[in-house]
């Protein structure tokens, strides 16, 4: 057992971080705030070229052949720089949808459920097609593929996250083409783990930003980070990140490695099917909590400056909301976990 990143995983992390600092610096991403075409085709092509979308596709099918463990490494970095676009969906679909593996952007939306809101499609101008995924409680049903052109989509004038443009979709949604023969549960679990890893990236980055600020900002003649009131907020935020990261990485390995799933199922007296759901649901719940709470904390540490548009922490808070409301809300996840407790 060695929970730490392997040498290859560390190299992957460094490699993707370097790539992102080059092609997706936050200042450049921010220049497209509130635009429909926030996804820069050059940057997207660079991600495709680097294998971000074919990451989970077996080498025999022309992919990179990595597992979700490596997926969490990559998506944590994507979260760290707030990379825009339907990244989670495209990468998670790639093993079952060759077009996604080639880097053609795809979205995933949850089938309409208990929310009062109409279905909202992210990045409507960027996506070629959308996969409508059965909700967690109906996971035995089929996922369907709908070309974006077949949807009746009305752009939302102003999105909460200025880097995630939205369109509202008229219901009922078109019937679409069933994705036959795919493991819908496994697809949803991949999506949940990658979304959770993105949230861990957000949770960690906002702590880093706020910590730097707390070291430099002086009030009452000393750096505010020396005050326990500030220090303790950040210590709790770090604890949330570390807990979520361990849960997300553990869930990824449980999905990747049947032997690990069997051992864990034995420890918790669950079936391996139950164990997989419990691991991904718990991971996403902790990661959603960590991202949202840490982003709020980071704004608080910045004081009045944190409430300005200029300081980027609000963008992390808004993106964490986008991810927390997708692919299993905190309420749904808590219900699922209780059923598996």
């Amino acid at each position: 057992m060695d929970f730490d990143l392997s040498d290859d995983q560390r190299a992957l992390k460094d490699g993707i971080a370097t790539l992102l600092d080059g092609v997706l610096p936050l200042e450049a991403t921010r220049s497209a705030e509130h635009r429909a075409d926030v996804v820069d085709p050059t940057a997207w092509a660079a991600l495709a070229e680097a294998g971000v979308f074919s990451l989970l596709v077996p080498e025999s099918d022309g992919g990179v052949g990595f597992g979700l463990a490596e997926g969490t490494v990559v998506f944590e970095e994507l979260g760290r720089v707030l990379a825009p676009g339907p990244l989670v969906a495209t990468t998670a679909l790639a093993p079952v949808l060759p077009a996604a593996a080639e880097g053609i952007a795809h979205a995933v939306i949850d089938a309409p459920g208990r929310s009062a809101a109409p279905p909202l499609l992210e990045h409507p101008a960027t996506c070629a097609a959308v996969v409508v995924l059965p909700r967690i409680e109906q996971v035995a049903e089929e996922a369907v593929l709908v070309p974006v052109g077949d949807l009746s989509a009305t752009p939302v004038e102003r999105s909460l996250d200025p880097l995630t443009p939205l369109a509202s979709l008229a219901t009922p949604l078109p019937v679409g083409t069933p994705l036959e023969g795919i493991d819908t549960a496994a697809l949803r679990q991949r999506i949940m783990v990658l979304a959770a890893a993105t949230q861990v990236g957000i949770a960690g980055e906002v702590v880093a930003i706020a910590t730097e600020y707390a070291k430099g900002r002086e009030q009452f003649g000393r750096p505010i980070g020396g005050f326990q009131a500030i220090k303790h907020l950040l210590a709790d935020a770090l604890a949330r990140t570390e807990l979520a990261r361990a849960a997300v990485q553990s869930a990824a390995v449980i999905l990747d490695d049947p032997l690990v799933a069997e051992r864990e199922a034995d420890t918790l007296s669950l079936s391996t099917v139950q164990l997989r759901w419990r691991a991904v649901a718990g991971a996403k719940l902790l990661a959603d909590d960590a991202a949202i709470t840490n982003a709020r904390t980071a704004i608080q540490v910045h004081g009045g400056m944190g409430f300005t548009w200029e300081v980027p922490v609000h963008l992390y808070l808004k993106r964490s909301r986008v991810l927390a409301s997708s692919f299993g809300t905190r309420s749904e996840l808590a219900d699922l976990l209780a059923a598996l407790a």
Partner: peptide, 20 residues
Amino acid sequence: RKRIGALTASFDGLWALTKR
């Protein structure tokens, strides 16, 4: 149920953190 669900996530996360 929500409290039980949230605690399940936290303790599983702590178990993962222990292994790390």
